[in-house]
Design a protein around this nucleic acid. Sequence first.
DNA 1: CCGGATCCGATCTGATACTG
DNA 2: CAGTATCAGATCGGATCCGG
Lengths: 125, 125
Amino acid sequence: MAAPLDPEMFDPVCPSDLSPVRFGDKWAGMIIRCLEAGPRRFSELRVPLRGITAKVLTRSLRTLERDGLVGRTVQAGPVRRVEYALTPLGRGLLGPMDVACEWTGRHWDELLDAREGVVPVSAAD
Amino acid sequence: MAAPLDPEMFDPVCPSDLSPVRFGDKWAGMIIRCLEAGPRRFSELRVPLRGITAKVLTRSLRTLERDGLVGRTVQAGPVRRVEYALTPLGRGLLGPMDVACEWTGRHWDELLDAREGVVPVSAAD
DNA sequence: CCGGATCCGATCTGATACTG
DNA sequence: CAGTATCAGATCGGATCCGG
């Protein structure tokens, strides 16, 4: 429902693999975020998830379904319409996700420094 | 530090892959838990991490080190002694971890039911 | 004691092409 | 529109053996 998903919802310059915290597989966290505001169609999800192939999106969604985090609804008709939505369980996961995201945001520069081999202060020769 | 690590700290019957939340690689979360009470030696870590091979433990520790979550200290001497400890950054991660663990604990049965294909209530024919 | 080197199978991810 | 089939590449976790 509601507003269409922002195509630039996930900044490609922001490699989220800097964060030690992961939710499900590579895409699961982003999918859950996409479903936060309400049910979304398959094609709708593909927009912010730049470049994800249908197969990969399908597999991630199936896994989320198997784990009880996402529900799938098929509406037969002239054109096929499949909607995905968070289950109550999946919605509950938003809490821990917010905590993880906030933590990562607060320590982004430290995480970045660590990767780049930056030393505390004056040791930087 | 202090007390030795409980060898049964991680229940093998408790497949943590039921939880959608993961910290780093397969072992990172457990390693961080092991370091919660203070620095630990390499061999010490291998006890609760039943069956982990030296190579894999080394790799996980190196990754944690690269990401700035764990520090490594070598004390040369008659016998080699290497200690690992949480950095302030790594220690901060305990917060989000606690949140994730608590959430998983609270929803354990729902997660289990989903995996076993249990339907809500009376739909179980 | 604390690893590194090598090799291997399993899993993950994706590109490409095709379908009800 | 919403997938499936197939194939290829990368990464992961681990067994086994070797070294400082």
